[in-house]
Design a binder for these strands. Structure first.
Length: 748
DNA sequence: AAGTTCCGAGTTTTT
DNA sequence: CTCGGAACTT
């Protein structure tokens, strides 16, 4: 077979990687170096050159978008992607758990919690433990538990060194019990359990090791501990993992990602061949020069220098705005120019560190009548009314789902108040039962007639709906439920456009159900040769495994529900409209734009105060800046505001140290403040102050003396005139905000 | 059970 | 400042 097209149009490094001999390989792929291309071509290579059967291939990504793109490109190249497992970690883990729910100790119709559901359940658990929510903050505990699961740790693995930790472990255990009772798993649990069933069932593991000879992983630097363990469990000792990543683009440490996994991989697979993709096809020479210089400030990199055969292009424009509104106006005007010169709005992107910054830009775009799109809002399946409707469907599908029960038992209101619910919760807790069965029991005794009747009507409603939709098509079932459960009437009563929009969204849910074809979800992938259907697998698989696999087919409703949680849908606005793009730096990863604005480049904001405390945090911020820089294809603007109103108060910050880490000659100041290329410029990266402050003689970093608190260092100012306040870090006393006019500070 | 006010927190985000 | 949740009224 002629396979030359598989290598056509690839550069030497890419070819080497694509045609790498069978065995472990690590591809260090810089930004814009064509990593997805390599991954996709490698898969085609495995099939067409190495003769690998497509169903021995497992390709793993982090986002649904990446998975869909990869699948699409494989299909373009091979004509099909059938029988390959291509998906996200979570999607694949889910698929395994559906196949092997018994080994996983789950109920067959287990449901998945998204983070909001998880937070609700957490609050419920804390309440049932009668813990003070101000001391045991639900969000923090949720974070703690997820972090443990990301590390592969169950409550029993944790050591209680002190009372606080002991309590945390107890809560973790209680939360697990609650999940089990309700038949639900959270996102982290999907991964952990998928790992555990392999770890604890040698036969099962053996089956999958035989089945997936070829494991390919995208964005490897983002894997957390449990994902890494899951992958290596599968790949050891005969697997041929082919992993692609970039240590310089690791920006998810805060949610458990371990860049070290790249290094660990080299230790665990010493024979792995290392390839580096350093030729960049995206940005101009100057942008790459800037990015290279910036990231060189990080320590312990694997090392990589981007280069291009293209032109150097224009210098990076640096704009010192007077304040955040001036910054936004500047961006608007520059995009106007871009459009006036024939550019499209969608080619311009405004990137910022935190979502709060988007507001001012939105106002400016609105003012200028310039269409824009903000990424990262609420997704379709996360909207309240959609979750309400899904909760009805979920409780129909699984009566024990307490989270859904609580959500809709009295919504729309049907006279079931707090007292009744308290009783149910109490009964459920003491009898280790679900709220549904508690309701059944309490109706018989223990409730007032009126409450019992109200509750009864709810139970009957659910049973009735369940019976009625039994033989309906999925979309008819969804339609029937939203019509009959009372949500629509309730939203219609809501005043204003809000209610209307909600009704529309509910109807949209029906169309989503109608458009939900088997191709979109894993249950159909199960329609591809399942383990038991495929003769070669059946002979290898243990009987246990093969028999289980037959029991896969998941009812359409259940698979739709899983789809809704795992793939929460696009945000608003249609992606084809010609809109200016606005998003956080995090969500910009993987994208590219001809014109990029990196806004809010100020100390405290970027690098963010809360991340800059330790070196690891600061380096991650720097990688984030690197990611932002490398999004730009032709033009890059960097802006900062000398004064910024944040949370209602004025703040004065220094320009970000990252500005000072770019080479002097790649920058061009539009409103000269920093006097780039003069010695003064060097001060930026050392934290020197270059602007006036409300306190004459004092500036950022000055040493000051206070009569009571002693000596300290000036950290920040806010406000003007008599309202001006100053933030000082006093030695041994910590950081304090003082009214400048009363503090009587003395410069030391 | 619905409507009010008050308080506190406010990086980053996928699944 | 601005949102969301909790605690308070009505």
């Amino acid at each position: 077979m002629d396979v030359s097209h598989l290598l056509d149009g690839l550069n030497d490094d890419q070819r080497q990687a694509v045609g790498s001999p069978l065995g472990a390989a690590l591809i260090l792929a810089g930004a814009g170096s064509g990593k997805t291309r390599v991954l996709v071509h490698r898969i085609a290579w495995l099939v067409q050159v190495e003769g690998a059967s497509p169903n021995t291939i497992l390709a793993v990504t982090f986002t649904n978008k990446a998975a869909a793109e990869m699948r699409g490109r494989i299909e373009t190249l091979l004509g099909h992607s059938m029988s390959m497992w291509v998906g996200t970690f979570h999607g694949l883990a889910h698929r395994l758990l559906r196949l092997h729910w018994r080994e996983a100790g789950l109920s067959q119709n287990f449901q998945i919690l998204d983070s909001e559901d998880q937070a609700r359940l957490m609050r419920k658990v804390l309440k049932s433990l009668e813990l003070d929510e101000t001391r045991w903050v639900p969000r923090e505990i949720q974070w703690f538990i997820n972090a443990q699961k990301d590390e592969g740790l169950r409550p029993k693995h944790l050591k209680a060194d002190d009372p606080t930790r002991l309590q945390l472990i107890k809560i973790y255990q209680a939360y697990e019990d609650a999940c089990k009772r309700a038949g639900v798993v959270d996102f982290a649990e999907l991964l952990l359990r998928a790992y555990e069933i392999w770890r604890d069932n040698p036969g099962l593991l053996e089956h999958y090791r035989n089945r997936f000879a070829h494991v390919l992983v995208d964005e490897f630097q983002d894997t957390n501990t449990i994902q890494y363990k899951w992958l290596t469990l599968l790949s050891t000792p005969n697997g041929l993992p082919f992993v692609v990543g970039d240590d310089d683009q690791s920006i998810y440490r805060w949610r458990g990602a371990k860049v070290e996994n790249l290094q660990q991989f080299r230790r665990d697979f010493p024979k792995a061949i290392l390839y580096k993709l350093e030729q960049n096809y995206r940005s101009t020479g100057i942008i790459l020069q800037a990015a290279n210089a910036l990231i060189a400030h990080n320590e312990g990199r694997l090392g990589k220098t981007l280069w291009t055969s293209g032109a150097p292009g224009e210098r990076i424009k640096l704009y010192a705005a007077f304040n955040e509104r001036d910054e936004a106006d500047f961006v608007v005007n520059r995009i106007r120019d871009w459009v006036a010169h024939g550019g499209a709005r969608r080619e311009a992107a405004v990137l910022y560190r935190s979502n709060a910054q988007s507001r001012v830009f939105e106002e400016a775009f609105l003012n200028a009548r310039m269409p824009y799109r903000v990424y990262g809002g609420l997704r379709f399946f996360e909207r309240a009314e959609i979750k309400d409707a899904l909760a009805y469907l979920r409780i129909i599908s699984s009566r024990n789902d307490d989270t859904s029960f609580e959500r809709v038992v009295n919504f729309p209101t049907r006279g079931i108040g707090a007292k009744t619910l308290d009783m149910l919760r109490d009964y459920a807790r003491t009898h280790a039962a679900s709220l549904w069965s508690a309701a059944e029991a309490c109706i018989k005794s223990g409730l007032t007639q009126r409450a019992a009747q109200a509750l009864q009507s709810f139970l009957q409603l659910i049973e009735k709906l369940a019976a009625e939709i039994k033989d309906l098509e999925l979309y008819e079932a969804v339609d029937h439920v939203i019509q009959m459960c009372g949500l629509i009437e309730s939203f219609k009563k809501e005043k204003g456009e809000r209610g209307e929009a909600r009704v529309e969204n509910l109807l949209e849910l029906v169309s989503a159900a109608r458009g939900f074809t088997p191709e979109q979800n894993w249950a159909d992938n199960a329609g591809l040769p399942t383990d038991a259907n495929s003769p070669e697998d059946a002979t290898r698989a243990t009987d246990v495994v093969a028999n289980r696999a037959i029991s896969v087919p998941l009812a359409p409703l259940e698979s739709f529900l899983a789809h809704a949680v795992l793939e929460s849908g696009e945000g608003q606005a249609d992606p084809y409209a010609d809109c200016v793009q606005m998003m956080t730096l995090h969500s910009a990863k993987g994208l590219e734009f001809p014109v990029v604005f990196l806004a809010g480049m100020e100390e405290g904001l970027f690098p963010h105060q809360r991340s800059a405390a330790d070196l690891a945090g600061l380096e991650e911020e720097r990688r984030l800046c690197y990611v932002g820089t490398t999004r730009a294809m032709r033009q890059l603007y960097i802006t900062y505001a000398e004064q910024r109103r944040l949370y209602g108060v004025d703040n004065y910050a220094q320009p970000s140290r990252f500005i000072g880490e770019f080479p002097v000659d790649v920058l061009e100041e539009i409103r000269p403040r920093l006097q780039i290329s003069r010695p003064l410029f060097a001060k930026i990266s050392q934290g020197g102050s270059l602007r006036e402050t409300p306190a004459p003689g004092m500036k950022m970093g000055s040493r000051v003396r206070h009569a009571k608190f002693g000596d300290g260092v000036v950290l920040n100012f806010e406000g003007n005139g008599p309202q001006a306040r100053i933030q000082v870090n006093f030695e041994g006393q910590g950081t304090k905000w003082l009214m400048l006019s009363y503090a009587n500070l003395e410069v030391v």
